[in-house]
């Protein structure tokens, strides 16, 4: 485990201009002999909102986990701001799927957000007031500061998702990896998350977001990775998010494609 002083310098290095926030080369991940994603390769532009879309079982979550070295890679290389993940970890915020944890766990919302700072606190050291203050600010940022002391099972789905978002935001990272933050949240929360994403973009941060609702892709993201075990296409939404590419990603579900074409048209009108 690296000491705090060393991390500071890594942080400064990594925000340098021109460093690609996330570059994936020839990445293959396999469970039980079966490859889950293979030959995945893309570079993401800095300061963009990136949507990762693809059908269920396409390996979207696995891709994020492989980037963070949470699952073993069969082959390939990942660079985050020009370095392996474990060297730029402080600069990456992670929002796991909401269903991946037990919300009956005996902690309150503030506790959960503070977890985002454990790396900065230092392993084996106690959390201090200044960390709690930062966590409180993050809760304010996502609009649920008044629920800080509430046990997490008493939060609504949207509030739980905001808590997870706050836990990532409190780190003040430059790259955010979010696993379906829009899944099963109320309209107000969806709006709040979109606002936060735009604000991140304004502050030149990059967010990579696994997303299910194809209709909102053109409105929410400016870059997209179409994934179905391998990368079907990646690039700016206007160029890549086409019916042909979607057909290659999802197979021929025409109703879906109509909806997407409609959404793209809306986007063009608004631009």
């Amino acid at each position: 485990m690296t000491g705090p002083a060393k991390i500071e310098t890594t942080n400064q290095d990594s925000v340098e201009q021109g460093d690609c926030p996330l570059s994936v080369m020839d990445l293959t991940v396999a469970y039980h002999r079966k490859p889950v994603i293979w030959d995945v390769e893309f570079d993401l532009p800095a300061g963009s909102l990136v949507g990762i879309v693809g059908p269920n079982g396409a390996g979207k979550s696995t891709l994020l986990k492989a980037v963070m070295e949470l699952v073993p890679r069969a082959s390939g290389r990942v660079e985050v701001f020009g370095k392996p993940y474990h060297l730029s970890r402080r600069n990456v915020g992670y929002v796991p799927q909401r269903e991946s944890v037990d919300w009956d766990f005996p902690v309150d919302a503030l506790d959960v957000v503070t977890m985002g700072l454990y790396g900065q606190v230092g392993w084996g050291r106690p959390v201090r007031q200044k960390h709690r203050d930062l966590a409180m600010q993050a809760l304010e940022h996502v609009g649920i500061a008044d629920l800080a002391k509430r046990q997490i099972s008493q939060l609504s789905g949207g509030q739980q998702q905001r808590t997870f978002l706050a836990r990532a935001l409190v780190q003040d990272a430059d790259l955010y990896l979010m696993d379906e933050p829009f899944a099963a949240v109320d309209a107000a929360t969806e709006k709040a998350i979109v606002e936060i994403l735009r604000e991140l973009k304004q502050r030149k941060k990059t967010a990579v977001v696994i997303h299910h609702d194809l209709q909102t892709v053109p409105a929410y993201f400016d870059y997209v990775v179409l994934l179905n075990m391998r990368v079907v296409a990646h690039g700016p939404v206007q160029e890549v998010f086409t019916p042909e590419n979607l057909q290659k990603t999802y197979g021929g579900r025409l109703t879906l494609l109509d909806e997407v074409t409609e959404a793209m048209r809306r986007r063009e009108r608004s631009l």
Binding site: H86, Y94, P96, V112, M115, G124, R167
Partner: peptide, 21 residues
């Protein structure tokens, strides 16, 4: 000594891993 680490491990092992635990 490892109270907050164990707390994070039990609550969300993936996030713990992503933070370098």
């Amino acid at each position: 000594v490892l109270f907050k680490e164990l707390k994070l491990l039990c609550f969300d092992a993936d996030f713990a891993g992503s933070r370098g635990l």
